[in-house]
Simulated scan of single mutants.
Amino acid sequence: MLPISTDKVAEVIILARELDRAENEFDGFVDQLTEDEQTALVAIFWIGRGSFDADDLQQAIATAEAEATTPTAQYLKGSPHLADHLENGLEALGINAGAAEDDLYRPT
């Protein structure tokens, strides 16, 4: 089980797509996540960009925890394909990112 909810990852994806207009909101949202959630977010990002396989999630989380030297929001914003990598990471883990994003845009 991921130490971060799919909804929170979906919110980061949505904010990442609007960084030019929502950078402060992105920073605030990521900064309020727990350390475990931030570490998991980085691991999902790495899986999505191909640095780790989905089967290596725990190793990706441990590596993200061990190598954390930059604030998570700042680190993630360094990738021009952040939203895509997060979506790909969730998909690799068997989670439908699009459905989670849709739920946030159109709550039931």
Rank of each mutant, 00 (worst) to 15 (best):
A64R: 06
E67A: 03
L2H: 03
A16R: 03
A54Y: 12
I47A: 07
T39F: 01
A68F: 02
D55G: 00
A83D: 15
Q74F: 11
S51Y: 12
K77T: 12
E87V: 10
I13A: 03
V42R: 10
D36Q: 15
A40H: 13
A40C: 15
G78H: 03
V42K: 06
D31A: 15
V9M: 00
D56F: 10
A22S: 08
S51T: 14
T108H: 06
T6W: 14
L76H: 08
L93T: 01
A68P: 07
A100Y: 12
K8H: 01
D36F: 06
T108I: 12
E101R: 15
L82R: 06
L82D: 14
D56Y: 09
D53A: 12
E65H: 14
T34S: 14
A100K: 04
I95V: 14
Y105S: 08
G94H: 07
V9F: 00
H85V: 02
P107L: 09
K8A: 01
A100L: 14
A83G: 10
A66F: 04
F26M: 06
E65C: 02
I95F: 09
W46A: 01
A62F: 08
A43Q: 09
L104E: 13
D84A: 12
I14E: 07
A54T: 03
D103F: 02
L15A: 04
A16Q: 05
L104C: 05
I4Q: 06
R106V: 07
N88A: 08
V12Y: 03
E18P: 00
P71N: 08
L86Y: 03
F52H: 04
F29C: 03
E18A: 11
Q38V: 00
D31E: 13
D102R: 15
F29M: 03
G98K: 13
A54V: 03
F26Y: 09
E25Q: 06
L41F: 01
D103K: 12
